[in-house]
Amino acid sequence: MVLILATGDIHAPAYTSSFLSALEKAGSIEPDVVLLAGDLVEHNNIAAFKPVYEELLKRFGGVPIVAVFGNEEYVGFEDEYRRVYGRVRWLNDEVLDLEVSGTRLCIIGSRGALNRPTKWQERHMPGLRAYYKTLPEKVLRMSRECRARGCQKIVLLTHYGVTFKNLAGEPRDIWDYLANPDFERVLAEGGFSLAIHAHAHRGVYERVVVGDTPVYNVSFPARGRIVEITLE
């Protein structure tokens, strides 16, 4: 059994105080791994993550803390986050292999993809539409490589959502900018044990199932707490 604590959308400093209070309420939970699903800061305010980072290390410094970047951690600044917050294992379309609780766990981490770019992204990030189109297949290949290496459990950690099935609570006209349902096929074919994302601040569903894969929206504004997930 693997115990995961997961959250995202802290948007420091916006939710820093609330998040630190949630950490207090988490009490003596001893996870095997902590997963952070992006948008940890607001407007690329790299320094604002420091109090969250320090408290995470204080409480969970003995276990892997794994994060992906969100849209608020701006593209091109990934190495700066890695430099300043080096105890976090940042994944950017990458795989991390871990041995936890006797289980070979592979985490595939990515910002993820939207069903279509926002208008701002279309203007300022040429090539993003093609990236969003090809990313699901890339993630599927990564999952198959994990399985071939003998990974027993594969977790997909993204910032953007991976299905429309858990977006109730969000206005229907913005669903294209919250998730990409092409990942539903990836989850069905990739042998994933679990998918975790954030970005949907008002999503009312914490957990849905896509095929056989549980999908969790761990957005802190939506949940109001750090989500505890048991991976059997």
Results as ranks from 00 to 15, higher is better:
A22V: 02
E228Y: 00
P136C: 02
V34R: 05
L114Q: 07
E54H: 02
V227N: 08
F164P: 00
R144D: 04
Y131F: 15
E55D: 11
P64F: 06
G38S: 10
Y132C: 01
T158Q: 01
I108S: 04
E189M: 05
G102W: 09
C146I: 11
Y205Q: 13
R87C: 05
R147Q: 10
H201S: 04
R185H: 02
Y53N: 06
V66L: 12
R225I: 00
G211A: 11
C151A: 14
G27D: 03
D32K: 08
N115F: 12
A168K: 09
A37G: 09
S28T: 15
C146M: 02
I65A: 08
T7G: 00
S219A: 15
A113T: 09
E99A: 10
G38Y: 12
V162W: 03
Y205W: 15
K50S: 14
M142G: 01
H199Y: 07
L140T: 00
Y131E: 15
D97P: 03
S17T: 13
R83Q: 11
A14T: 12
E78Q: 13
L157A: 00
K119R: 13
D173Q: 14
G27C: 08
E189R: 05
L178N: 07
T118I: 10
G190A: 09
R129L: 08
A26K: 14
I196L: 14
E54A: 07
R185F: 09
S219Q: 06
G86K: 08
G8V: 07
V139H: 03
L3I: 14
P13C: 02
T158K: 02
G102Y: 10
R82Q: 11
F164N: 09
E232R: 13
V155R: 00
D39H: 06
P171R: 11
I46C: 06
S110R: 02
D176I: 05
Y74V: 12
A195Y: 00
V227F: 01
R87L: 11
Y81W: 14
D79S: 13
N166C: 07
